[in-house]
Amino acid sequence: MSTVRLSLLDFASKHDGQTAAEALAASVALAQRAEASGRFERIWYTEHHNMPSIVSSSPAVLIAHVAANTSAIRLGAGGVMLPNHSPLVIAEQFGTLAELHPGRIDLGLGRAPGTDQVTWRALRRDPRASDQFPEDVEELRGYLAGESLVHTVDAYPGSGTRVPLYILGSSMFGARLAARLGLPYSFASHFSPAALQPAVAAYRAEYTPSEDFPTPYVIAGANAVAGTTLEDARRRHETVLRGRVTSMVRQNPQFRGRELTEADVDALMTSPLADQARTMLMYTAVGTTDDLRTYLEDFAQKADADEIMVALHGSTTEEQMTTLDALAAV
């Protein structure tokens, strides 16, 4: 078995023909299978809004449900998009989770809204909130440490739980912020790979030790698609790629509600949009367990990462389970 530390990123994807309830039940089943394997460090859940194929719009609620149906594996947000929220509310939510499930909860923090500008306005947030991200992170950390930076205000529950914070990012901004604050850094190379190596190098070079994290720690994102054979996995990967292109088209307000035919998607696969999707999925392990092992070991070295967080891809829950099982044997 490889010594590479592996974790999972679950988008709580709602596949064709599934209801939201079925997709959420699938996330529980995936977590239970991952926990039973004993191979994975943690599972994180994403925050996305106004995306019909992703039902993880409320990571804290989903984490609570999954935690109640598992017993040991670490669970967290990968992440909470902090500009969408009050730091106090997030401290209370994750403080509650930490009290209910001690030693099992992580909190990854992102600066992006996780949605489009129209939806962001519907969340009742000021578009300038992203500019306050560093200050919001420090305010949140103060609440969780029991050292509130806001006079007479504290988080109950939350105060003193010291829920581990991770900075998420895909640029130098997040890398340098994580280094300055002495926090672990999770790079979103599973969909935004361009700055991976320079960002990690800057983070490690500039890291300032903190009480909770005396040494730097890097998580790098990758994708995985497994099959019974390499050819089978490649076919599944092509289906995933087509799905990504379709999703990118549907995110355009001009095309919302429009059904794309297979011929439409065929035409799109030779377009600049498809090239963009291929670039986004640059770091993808495809194949059987042996193929995944070789790829992820090489990727960990290339990324200079302490841990690889793998996004499970597939057009069905069964395909995601196949990939999970293959990863468990890596």
Results as ranks from 00 to 15, higher is better:
V66K: 02
N50T: 02
L109Y: 02
Q32A: 11
V249Q: 03
Q301I: 12
G146N: 02
D325C: 00
L62N: 04
V55I: 14
V225I: 15
P59H: 08
R278D: 07
V89Y: 10
P59D: 09
F133N: 07
I308P: 03
R236M: 04
L123Y: 04
G174Q: 05
H313T: 02
N84I: 09
H49A: 08
W44M: 10
L268M: 14
G114V: 07
M51K: 11
A21N: 08
R121G: 15
P127L: 07
T294R: 15
S13F: 10
P59C: 11
P272H: 05
M280K: 12
A155H: 01
G110I: 11
R125P: 10
P127W: 06
Q93R: 14
I105A: 06
T261F: 00
G160S: 03
V150M: 03
E262A: 15
S56D: 08
L8E: 02
A224K: 05
L312D: 10
L181M: 07
A175T: 03
G257V: 05
Y143E: 03
A267M: 12
P216V: 06
L109K: 01
D212H: 07
A68S: 15
R124I: 00
G160A: 05
H85D: 10
P193F: 05
V66M: 07
H237S: 13
L97F: 05
P209H: 04
V225D: 05
R235T: 14
A326C: 11
L6E: 03
S56P: 09
T70C: 05
L144G: 09
E99L: 12
S13Q: 14
E139N: 00
T322K: 06
R234Q: 15
R162H: 13
P102M: 09
G110S: 06
G160W: 04
H85I: 03
R204Y: 00
L144P: 12
H237L: 12
I167Y: 01
D264V: 12
T229M: 06
Q117L: 15
V137G: 01
A267S: 14
D264L: 10
G221T: 03
G287H: 07
G174P: 05
F299A: 09
L165E: 01
M309D: 00
R124S: 14
Y166A: 00
A224E: 02
S71W: 00
R258V: 15
D116W: 04
A226V: 06
T119H: 10
L149A: 12
A328Y: 08
A202Y: 01
G142Y: 00
T288C: 09
R125Y: 05
S130V: 15
T279V: 03
